[in-house]
Design a protein around this nucleic acid. Structure first.
Lengths: 237, 237
DNA sequence: ATTTAAGCGGTTATCGATAATCGTTGACGT
DNA sequence: ACGTCAACGATTATCGATAACCGCTTAAAT
């Protein structure tokens, strides 16, 4: 077995895929020894991968009882928006300064979103949506802010969120809603840009709120690991 | 060797103490096998503890190169305040609703702060300062917000921060500055309360900014593991 | 019948040993 | 001198085995 990187990283990648693709459902147990046997390796790297995934909030463990896939519940989906709103407002304010360097990147992300949306590729759509927001965070230049935002694991949540969103509101113009942000950045007013960012995030929060109020949840939709998202994420690993 | 909890937890506690007490300095290597031998256990739990501490940002590891104590630099100290400001503003807004249940706790924290300050016990002072803020976060009721704030590891940073602060401005009334927050909570206006919280955090950011501009840094001060903080933290573990 | 205790299967937590990797040292050739 | 590379010591990453532990089932006791 040749290994380009540490085994535990590979294990993590693989398990992440398994979770994102629904092969493991929320609540499912992740038994170290079973996974190890399946992958033909020993327990240690699996264990380490699982602990890493705890930090990423994909997995939860209880001492002596093992790991299971964390389930993202309605409450959590809704609670995240106020937090994102305030963090991204700050990011928007700070990003104005260095915005010019990032405009291309942002516009590209929007275009990819539109394309992915057209082909109903939710995974790739989520990827570029997150990518857009992450770019603005990076442009903020505040490393703590970036890490804090990262700790929210927006990737995973966004995928779930957008799956819901699109299945309820197939016509919503996700990509287009990002243009006002780019415009605000071009304009160069930090306060205003912050407000636009905040509003953008809050809007999605409200939409999600509406979704949860109108119908019961059930996720999963057009899940495939073939799109751009998979490749880019693997590279990032 | 009797063990009430998992070894890796104990190891983590011990290493945390070692770091907080300066027995390990920022940048020092943390060699798994050495620590294991010193503690009379095997490498595995040490390794696991170290990985945990990476998630806590106390430690950084490079693959195949091992772990070392992370150093908190000036930039990081300063960058954290804008982030805290926006998170705690939100917390202040949300906390108003359930504030009455928490007022006693908050007032107690302030009193302990004053006491610790009088005896120049920086560790305990930091503990109660953090405790005050954490209480408001809890009162917010937003679990994501709480976890996000926790991910900032305010404990560790506050200790360093206050060590600096007090050595430069021995007369500053740290405890007293928290009363306006309690008053705002009692008043019951969410927006105002949020603003007070934000202002409170920003003030400290500004003070720290001033400190870094006026003199070079050098930390460590009256470090002892005897105070309340140690006990309470151990219990919380 | 209800409670307590012992046994069992399955899994985690820990161990001790080994393989893989890194940084350095020093011989060697130029 | 200086750059290259083989060998070494130190340390991490991984392994395979075992001890400790949990939840459950069954047997014994009241």
């Amino acid at each position: 077995m040749i290994q380009r990187v540490v085994l535990s990283e590979q294990v993590k990648e693989e398990l992440l895929d398994d979770i994102m693709n629904g092969r493991y459902q929320p609540g499912d147990r992740l038994v170290e020894s079973q996974i190890a046997k399946r992958m033909g390796i020993s327990q240690s790297p699996v264990r380490e991968a699982l602990r890493d995934m705890v930090a990423m909030r994909f997995v939860e463990v209880e001492p002596h009882k093992g790991a299971r896939v964390r389930k993202i519940d309605e409450r959590e989906v809704l609670e995240i928006y106020p937090v994102r709103a305030c963090l991204e407002e700050l990011a928007g304010q700070l990003a104005v300064e260095r915005a010019p360097e990032y405009l291309d990147q942002l516009n590209t992300a929007i275009k990819r979103m539109a394309k992915a949306f057209a082909s109903r590729d939710v995974r790739t759509l989520a990827y570029w949506d997150v990518s857009f927001h992450r770019t603005i965070l990076e442009a903020s230049g505040n490393q703590i802010l970036i890490e804090t935002w990262n700790s929210l694991m927006i990737e995973a949540r966004t995928f779930v969120t957008l799956s819901n969103l699109i299945s309820r509101s197939p016509e919503i113009d996700l990509a287009g809603r990002h243009y006002p942000i780019v415009e605000a950045l071009e304009e160069g007013d930090p306060i205003k840009c912050g407000k636009v960012m905040r509003r953008h995030v809050e809007e999605f929060g409200e939409v999600m709120h509406g979704i949860f109020n109108h119908s019961e949840h059930s996720m999963q939709l057009n899940i495939s690991e073939k799109g751009e998202a998979a490749q880019s994420r693997a590279k990032a690993g």
